[in-house]
Design a protein around this nucleic acid. Sequence first.
RNA 1: GCACCCGUAGCUCAGCUGGAUAGAGCGCUGCCCUCCGAAGGCAGAGGCCAGGGGUUCGAAUCCCUUCGGGUGCGCCA
Length: 593
Amino acid sequence: MNIFADFHARVAAILAGFAKAGRLPDNLDLARFVVEPPREAALGDLAVNAAMVFAKEAKAGFGNPRQLATEIAFALAEDSDVSQAEVAGPGFINIRLQPHVFGAVLRAALAQGGDYGRAPQGRVGAAQKINVEYVSANPTGPMHVGHGRGAVFGDALASLLEFAGHTVTREYYINDAGAQVDVLARSAHLRYREALGENVGEIPEGLYPGDYLVPVGKALADKFGKGLLDKPESDWLETVRVFAIDAMMEMIRQDLAALNITHEVFFSERSLTRGEGGDKVKAAIDYLTSKNLVYVGRLAPPKGKLPDDWEDRDQTLFRSTQFGDDVDRPLLKSDGGYTYFASDIAYHKVKIDGGYNTLIDVWGADHGGYVKRMDAAVKALSGGKVALDVKLCQLVKLMRAGEPVKMSKRAGDFVTLREVVDEVGVDAVRFMMLYRKNDAPLEFDLAKVIEQSKDNAVFYVQYAHARVKSVMRQALAAIPGLDLSADALAKADLALLTDEGEIGLVKMLAQFPRVIEAAAAAHEPHRLAFYLHELASLLHAQWNRGKDAAELRFVNEDKRDLTCARLALILSLSTVLAAGLGVLGVRAPDEMR
RNA sequence: GCACCCGUAGCUCAGCUGGAUAGAGCGCUGCCCUCCGAAGGCAGAGGCCAGGGGUUCGAAUCCCUUCGGGUGCGCCA
């Protein structure tokens, strides 16, 4: 039950009536106006801006927007759920709802439990098939904190979209085709020689020095003995590469598992050219060629400082400028191989052919310069039918008690994602990474996130949930035999909830479905995190009012009906907290021990 | 030189795709525990939404521009 969407439909119906009577054009885009909570609660329960939005269209039939507003308000006042509808300010319609509407919201929330706020089955038309590609760290080493942010973001976004009624696939693109996996193979081979007793000394420049390859070397030695020793690289490279990539991917999978992240699809870049179905990169290029979007030409060198090895020559180019890119982009390297972009085009073509309406790519901010060309490619490949949204995650600055954590680039001496998770826990890592817009830089303070104070948003929200559970336990102790099930509490006399704070909490509850919808539509899970924090804040505040005024406490032994009504309220709130945290992948504990 | 992201309270950040008098936490000042978890809460001070133009009923939000910060800039991934 979403009263905002509900009343949007009712106002839309009123407008349609005016259109039928010839007083408004009948091609109004009804998605343009909104029904939202008013700026201040004192103004009412719902605010509608339709009259102002359609001011231009209403000129002929109504004169000025206030007249349109007045007539909409008049029609709304007939609604049995409305106690008052009045025009205010430049043309807002402020609606005050009958108390029974909020009772109905509360009962609906209790009846639906963890599914309250989940998109109803009825919205088939709006549901999409969405592919979320995230993490996609190169399989050359353990994940660092920056990867972790993209991972958590992508995972929470995927869950959010599912909760909002979409069909979602979580996907990981393995960059296993480039030169750096050859470097990985050489590095692993060195560790292999080391495992067989050779003193390899310092790891040479250009190879991966990290200790994490030591066990890979040992495993190679166990499996192949001396079989890969004293042979030219061409004899062992392929074997070692496959082996090392598998080991790295296994390690990455474990890092992700530590964050409760799993992907349904791991897509190998290499499989594009060597997998079943032939060379998919060639097929993609052929497809673009057939659309006359590929040509051989010369690119102007970039202005400013020229690259040292610049060589003016013809290239095979994709006409990305036709789709908004700044320059056309090369598809073939000078050695004849495919560029990374060419592979990525093929990869996105595979996704498009998979029937998705929306593709979401989660990348690090350092790939921002790549967005336009990818967008151009998806437009070209899908004929503009498939939407691509690239979400860029900014850097994570690791801090400890206000001081930056030193991250030297030397010898694999960096803080891994795993170390951070082990130190502060999954919940803290996940929530803090989501408690920020994805395109804003993030300061992650290792000391602060394990602090148990309101300074720490994770704790604060979890505590709100635990506090409700605690009150429930107290209630049972105070009134033995009380039935605390949602079914029983839903039968309480909810009209007894008349305190301002209580009504504020019910309104907050009513907003949950709307927050889910908006956050999902904008692909912004942080909105949910902020909503949960605000909900927790209101809950703590109401709890505290009971400190000063005993009659406001949730549990009153001698007022059983009132107690039940209040328990119904906070139970529904705890359900929302649990559901919301669940979407973010954070636990909702029953007690904070 | 060009492109993209960002600029909101002393600090860290929200601001619901253009709505009403711009919000929260920290920090600062002053309060609240014989009482459901003070691991909390209440109140106060603090702003030319980087600057300047524009679009319209209405702009922190959209467009142009200047300044300041970040990222990237044939064939790497």
